[in-house]
Structures are given as structure tokens and as C-alpha cells.
Amino acid sequence: MLIAFYVAAAVAVLATILAVTRRSAVHALLYLILSLLAVAVVFYLVGAPFVSALEVIIYAGAIMVLFIFVVMMLNIGEHATEVETTWLRPSTWAWPSALAAILVVELIYVVVRGARPAGAMRVITPKEIGISLFGPYAIGVELASLLLMAGLVGAYHLGRRAYREEDRYGADTDRRRVVSGDDAVRAGSDRTSHAA
């Protein structure tokens, strides 16, 4: 099990190095997802299966989907198809697939050897985490919900402003441009007053 831990850690570090040095954002995201999956394997091996599942679901699932959506939105254009054909070349996905294959082999090895992560002193169960989370850490849960609410409202606000400015490319451009320019100036001053 110790060798599995070291292999997963090496995959994580390698994937992160490759992620921060790539030139294209999509390649970097591919390596970043791989890095998160490797870290999830490390979590499982040190006796934190619940957190490992959370890492895969929330980090590698939800947050990375957000990143990919934004990257795809920023790449809209007439050259999108040729960019996509460049991304789908084998040299792009060969290395991430190789690293992911290492993780899959490791997963099979761990499952075959036995369900319990053997490297751990003591496996901390989800039940234990839940009892502690809603016992002494209940105020932290409330604060996290407050933070998520603030994040939701903030993201909605920023996205809505952006959407309205996009209107200026629509019909009757001249009048609309004057109006939206005024609006943009007002939005900017609004934001600076918020920041202050």
C-alpha cells in the first residue's frame, strides 16, 4: 500500500507540473483534473474515503466543469472548429490518458487487495465526520452556507451585468450603444464604490 501511495503522489505532482506549464488552457485543465483524481487516491489511501469521494465529486466534477464552461465560452468564434481539431489530436490526450491509466491500475490493485485502505492507522467514517460536523462545528456549517449564498449572489450579479452589455450587438445599434455605454460607466462606478 505504501508503494501505491507514493505512485499516486508522484502522479499528482507530475500532473500539476504539466498543468501549470501548458500553453493551452484546455490541456492544462485536463492535467489539473488528473492531479485532483490522484490527490483523491492519496486521500483514500490515508484513510479518508469520504473526503476522497467529495474531492472527485466536487473538485473534479463541479469546479472543473465550471472551468471548462468558461474556457469554451471564451473560445467562441469562427475558428472554433479548427481549434477543436487541434485539441483532439492524439498527442494532446496521450499523456493524460497514460497517467490516468496508472491511477486505474492502482485502483484495481487496491480493490483486489481488499476494501480497507491498509496504509491507514484508522479509517475515519462518514458517520464520525457528520457527528463532528453538526456537533462542535455547527457554526462553521452556518458560515459556509452564508459564504456559498454570497458567492451565488455575487456570481449572479457579475454575470447579469455582462449579459446586459452584450445587448449592444443587437438591433438599432447606435441608440443602444449610447445607452449601454452609459450603463457600463455607471456599473463601473457602482463596483468601485462597492470595493471601497
Binding site: A48, F50, V51, L54, E55, I58, Y59, A62, I63, L66, F67, V70, M73, L74, I124, E128, I129, S132, L133, Y137, G140, A144, L147, L148, A150, G151, L152, G154, A155, L158, G159, R161, A162
Partner: peptide, 27 residues
């Protein structure tokens, strides 16, 4: 289990941070 609870909080914080950050990037 305290360390894992801290990780759950970090996860919530990262989710909020990245949503606002990406909205700012779009803007």
C-alpha cells in the same frame, strides 16, 4: 476527524471563490 471537516470547509470556500472568480473573468 477535525482535519477532514476543515477540508470540507475548504471545499465550500473553493467552490464559492471559483464561481465568483470565473464570473469576474467573463466580465
Amino acid at each position: 476527524p477535525d482535519g477532514q471537516i476543515m477540508f470540507v470547509f475548504i471545499l465550500a470556500m473553493a467552490a464559492a471563490e471559483v464561481s465568483v472568480g470565473l464570473a469576474l473573468v467573463l466580465q
